[in-house]
Design a protein around this nucleic acid. Structure first.
Length: 129
RNA sequence: CGAGUUGGCUGUACGGUCGCGUGGCGUUUGCCAUGAGGAAAGUCCGGGCACCGCAGGGCAGGACGCCGGAUAACGUCCGGUGGAGGCGACUCCAAGGAAAGUGCAACAGAAACAGACCGCACGCUUUUGCUGCAAGGAUGGAAAGGGGAGGUAAGAGCUCACCGGCGCCCCGGUAACGGGGCGCGCCGUGCAAACCCCGUCCGGUGCAAGAUUGGGCAUGAGCCGCAUGGGUUGCCCGCCCGGCGCAUGCCGCCAACAUCGCUCGAACGCUCCGGCGACGGAGCGUCCAGAUAGAUGACCGUACACGACAGAACCCGGCUUACAGGCCAAGCUCGGAAC
RNA sequence: GCAGAGAUGGCGGAGUGGUCGAACGCGCACGACUCGAAAUCGUGUGUGCUCCUACAAGAGCACCAAGGGUUCAAAUCCCUUUCUCUGCG
């Protein structure tokens, strides 16, 4: 499946059991825009959790894309591989900048990311490490 | 020119860098192709497909309901009929049966399968009651065909013409129905989106359906049941029938987050033919998402009416609902101006 | 995705088409009892608009998720929409 496309930037969390494990044992950190759950893992992995409370399907899809894009931008700055679960908070509007800033701030507080500003990381020049 | 009616189309576009799903080539980097909607929605109908007792019968239940046609089918669509609304183009209508039966019509009112409260009037009586009548009043959503003329003591289809109703006949139409004639003084309110009657149709469950693998074979003993039992959509008849786990040996496999179902189809585009039309037929051409925590985003540039509602989940045909703006057709209707 | 159930005062929850703004219970307010409180008993208690009014009281209309329809009459029957809940891997 995805692995034959060469070294992708990050893998995805798919199994329901994994989600349950993340909720039960993952470390939590908060930011105004979203809640981040993470665990150490062999490679970078991402899961998003958007419920019906956030809106109808178009809105939910939009939120998921923004979360993935924010993670894609922050990902190269990560110091060690983790499995990360992103849960947005309910809001009137969801913007990429808010998610990106929130995610970066939360990860820096946990020491998973070096201290440079989030905006400098933006173009992930090459994806082969 | 203004106002309006009906039907239909479109609903950001192009380029660059990075990123995502699927398919192909390479298989080290990567490259190429392709990638949401008219409603994908609500799940309100109708099918296909799949499985279920082998699906047979009856009852119950449900849906539909002017007529004719289209269709795989429909509660949809088309063309008519009747009714309602609009000056009109046109729009809307669950539109069979109330003399098959049952039921309901509260309150008000004298009376709502039925009549006399007020009233009107001749005569008797004259405080009042008897008798005749149902025009007017009053109640009500509904009051005994309608409103005129004659008639009468007062009145009444009592009589007459018109309208309405019912029955019969003739003509037109496939039919619903329309037109005309004759007869009957009129047997009668509303509700069947109350039960119901008549006609037509329907087995159930739904891709979380289901199929493949998850073990197979052999041997051994055990437990439950052996029919007043179990299975079978709600019920009855009918129909079908043993089930469960354990130990040992050999082969197989690591397991559910798998594979298939999963997208070529009542498909789409163009042209021609038949039909008023829905639609049908023929020819040529095209391949157009198949995800499974669920793929379309970020940034930059250009253009403009600055982009609405909104995201496939087995697939089709409809209905309903949401929707910024733009365009087209019928050159259709009304009003104004000019000629 | 598919299937099903429901929405009635502040809350729970009844309500065969007809005097239904709507039973009943919990609340809440006031009163009685008490030295005071609890318990008990009694009374009252929805919202909005209009009228009237210094307030209170009173009168009328509308509202049973929203919008239509059938009916003389709808919380109830029918259709559409919105929202909530439940089951199925």
């Amino acid at each position: 499946m995805g692995r034959r496309r060469g070294p992708a930037l990050y893998g995805r969390i798919k199994k329901n059991a994994e989600f349950k494990k993340m909720f039960a044992r993952g470390k939590k950190c908060f930011s105004p825009a979203l809640l981040v759950l993470y665990m150490p893992a062999e490679k970078m992995r991402l899961g998003v959790c958007v419920s019906k409370k956030h809106g109808k399907s178009v809105k939910r899809n939009r939120i998921k894309r923004l979360l993935r894009e924010a993670f894609r931008k922050v990902c190269p700055a990560m110091l060690r591989p983790c499995a990360v679960l992103l849960i947005p908070k309910e809001a009137q509007q969801y913007t990429l900048a808010a998610f990106e800033r929130g995610l970066f701030a939360a990860l820096r507080r946990e020491g998973l990311v070096d201290g440079k500003g989030a905006k400098d990381v933006a173009p992930p020049a090459k994806d082969g490490v």
